[in-house]
Computed example of a mutant assay.
Amino acid sequence: MNKFYTAQEVADKLKIKKTTVYELIKRGELSSSKIGKQLRVSEEQLAQYLDGAAQISTAAQTRDYQPESSLLKRDYLLHSSGLIISGQSSPALDLLLNQLPSTPGSLPVLQSHMNTYNGLYSLYFEKVHLACAAASLEDIESLVPGVSLTAIRFCQYPVGFYVKKENPRNIRDFSDLTRADIIFANREKGSSRRVLLDRQLKASKISPEAISGYRNELVSDYSTAAAVAGGQADTALGEGYAARSFPGLTFLPVREETLYLILRSENFCAPGFQAVADTIASENFRRTLSLQTGYDTSHTGEIITL
């Protein structure tokens, strides 16, 4: 008989927080079933999750992440009466989606889960209205060429390496990824983490083939952090906030990254868009985001024309 576990029992088995279990379920990385009014994870569902993490497999990418070719199927979204925002789940985007309905002039919002590259690609082809992008303004302009853009600054946060507590492998920089005793948990192409990694490797003249685990991709900071916490990998790149959900991890910052919300300038004064800008610029949004995450919100809400 297939046994069912509570969220706390799953957390105990994976040695993570119960809130992280709910986060994995929310992101679709861990399947669950509803029995009555209770959420449960079956033995089979847990085994599938563990198998995917253990292999750090591209099968997880196929299941949870849709490549850019699938964007052709998203045209119907633009016939909705609301706004479509692309972006993978993040504390900043989640807070915006929670607070936006109470802002005067807001419209219903549908989130399309895409990483930075695919979100900007979709904005260029007018398949989404707004795109979350963790990238430089120069990169953003190059990915949406010939279009007048407006960038709303979300926040700044540190990106770095996830390692086990006290860093037993003594991982310090990108050159350590080539060591024979290190397995890396990588992110999918188009994500800001992958862009950072590939640029650093090129600048340091390090071949990706020298890194064990480079070709195996996961689709969120939570999944790569879980791989390190669970012992399936020795390190991964991600934001510091995700590491807090795994008591067994230490975070080693590498650089600061800025998250923007990008839209076509021609739409800035259209219905619904101003409510988005007003929500992000509000003191309540900035204070709540900073308290929840520790993010730098000193420039949150700033408008930049590209």
Rank of each mutant, 00 (worst) to 15 (best):
I140P: 03
L218M: 12
G28V: 08
S191V: 00
N186R: 07
N267F: 09
D64C: 14
Q292M: 11
P101I: 03
F273E: 02
L24M: 11
S204I: 08
F285P: 05
K15A: 09
S80A: 10
Y22C: 05
S122V: 05
S69R: 05
K73R: 08
V195F: 05
D221I: 00
L261H: 07
I303V: 12
E138C: 00
G119Q: 02
G294I: 01
N186K: 06
L95T: 07
S148L: 09
P145S: 02
K15C: 04
P108L: 06
K18C: 06
Y117M: 00
I211E: 09
G238H: 01
F246I: 00
A185N: 04
L78A: 00
Q88Y: 03
L120Q: 05
G146R: 09
Y5M: 12
E23T: 14
N267K: 14
S245C: 11
L197R: 01
G52Q: 15
A225K: 01
H299T: 10
G87H: 08
F154L: 13
F268N: 02
L259C: 10
T19H: 12
E43F: 11
A47R: 15
T178R: 06
A59L: 15
A270L: 15
N115S: 07
Q156V: 08
S57W: 15
T58R: 15
A47G: 13
I303A: 02
F174Y: 07
G213S: 07
G240I: 01
V254P: 01
L14N: 13
E239M: 10
T58F: 14
I35E: 07
Q66V: 08
F154K: 11
A275R: 13
S31K: 13
R194G: 03
L197H: 00
Q61Y: 12
R187M: 02
V147C: 11
A226S: 04
N170W: 00
A229D: 06
M114A: 02
S106N: 07
K37A: 03
A236T: 01
L249A: 06
L83S: 02
R172H: 14
T297S: 04
R199W: 05
Q88C: 06
Y65V: 06
F268D: 01
K37H: 10
S57I: 15
L96Q: 09
K13M: 11
N118H: 03
D139S: 11
E256D: 10
D64F: 12
T224F: 02
I140S: 01
I206W: 06
N115V: 01
E283D: 13
Q200F: 03
A92F: 14
H79A: 04
D296A: 02
S223V: 08
N118Q: 02
L93V: 13
D173N: 15
Y157H: 03
V159A: 06
R169Q: 12
T62S: 12
R63L: 12
I303N: 04
D173S: 11
I35F: 13
Q48A: 13
P104F: 00
S282W: 08
A236C: 04
G146S: 10
